[in-house]
């Protein structure tokens, strides 16, 4: 469905030095730096797959997504989406895809969302009967009934995002590009969006790529993750494997009937936190069983659970590690972030 080979996207951005004198010099003599937003990425995505793009800010996730949608031309490399070359932006290709950006909106601001739906129906040439069916389905699943007639500007952020998603699905796209679709939403609205996206994927067999800062989004939606860091692919595979690789340890959470000393816990494993009624230990995977049985015999344990470390932590550790590896490999002190004015994330 989606095939990316050696994708590179480099920008030339002018350096903007600090200070008035330097700024004035820059008016006449600009110096440029090359920013490697995406620097040689290769992956394939099968039809119906749900893939999450992970990476810190400025890693190249959105750039990759925009190249796949045909909004940016790659500097080099081959990109194909369902047999189309995205940068040509043929109508047949555009009718198969959709892009939702959590930070930007396409809904007509002063008119009700139903007007945007109608406009998109005409633009995408959706037959009237199919349009009605799609809208009534979306209205039911996303609970839009009361929102469709209100001007967009009167909707809350969550309500707007639901309508935004619906507007992008009027033509029943086969490929969904979702760039931070849940940003700024409260937890229950995030859940609604996630459930809906999964249902759409299952019902229409749509392929979806998601970028998100909320690890929960990715964990709930994407069995496969692609980690992009500084424009390069640093991991491609199952989320569970990624967690196991970065953090082979498990967390054992003990609920205690009375307070214990830190000294009692330390022989069992690394103490992550300790409160009067609750203790969290980190132990290697192969030692979980032994630790649990020792704790049960020596501590006042009421209840216990074994968990993976929080995804947020796993990711920040992963990014910290790759940063450290890069800094080691970079003998010259040139900072790759410095001076650029482009916003290339």
């Amino acid at each position: 469905m989606i095939s990316v080979k050696g994708l590179k996207k480099h920008y030339r951005v002018s350096k903007r030095p600090p200070g008035l004198k330097a700024a004035l010099t820059a008016l006449f003599r600009r110096s440029y730096t090359e920013v490697k937003a995406v620097d040689g990425i290769t992956f394939d995505i099968a039809p119906g797959e749900r893939v999450g793009f992970l990476g810190p800010n400025g890693a190249g996730k959105t750039t990759t997504l925009k190249v796949l949608a045909g909004l940016l031309h790659p500097s080099s490399g081959e990109v194909q989406v369902d047999g189309h070359v995205p940068k040509r932006r043929e109508d047949a290709f555009l009718k198969k895809i959709m892009l939702v950006m959590g930070q930007k909106q396409q809904l007509l601001w002063d008119l009700p969302p139903s007007e945007t739906f109608e406009l998109n129906r005409a633009i995408y040439e959706v037959p009237r009967a199919q349009f009605k069916e799609t809208i009534s389905e979306l209205t039911k699943l996303l609970e839009l009934a009361e929102l469709l007639g209100k001007p967009t500007r009167q909707l809350s952020l969550g309500e707007r995002m639901k309508c935004e998603l619906a507007a992008a699905l009027v033509h029943r796209p086969k490929v969904l590009f979702l760039d931070e679709p849940t940003i700024g939403l409260d937890v229950s609205m995030q859940t609604v969006m996630r459930d809906f996206i999964r249902r759409y994927n299952e019902r229409y067999g749509a392929t979806l790529i998601l970028t998100s800062h909320y690890m929960d989004d990715v964990a709930a939606l994407c069995p496969r993750v692609v980690v992009i860091d500084k424009g390069q692919l640093s991991y491609d595979g199952g989320l569970d494997d990624l967690v196991r690789r970065v953090r082979p340890e498990k967390r054992v959470v003990f609920h205690l009937s009375k307070a214990v000393d830190r000294a009692d816990l330390e022989p069992l494993g690394q103490v992550v936190s300790l409160a009067p009624a609750k203790a969290v230990l980190q132990v290697a995977q192969d030692r979980v069983a032994a630790t649990v049985s020792r704790a049960l015999s020596s501590l006042p344990v009421k209840d216990l659970t074994v968990e993976n470390p929080p995804l947020e932590e796993v990711m920040s550790e992963l990014f910290a590690r790759s940063r450290a590896a890069r800094e080691e490999g970079q003998a010259d002190g040139e900072s790759e972030e410095g001076g650029g004015e482009g916003d290339w994330e």
Binding site: R89, L99, I123
Partner: peptide
């Protein structure tokens, strides 16, 4: 300015017309 031209460019119709 707002970066929403992307939505226009992704529509299967002439962008200048839209």
């Amino acid at each position: 300015r707002k970066g929403t031209l992307d939505f226009i460019l992704l529509k299967p119709a002439d962008a200048q017309f839209l």
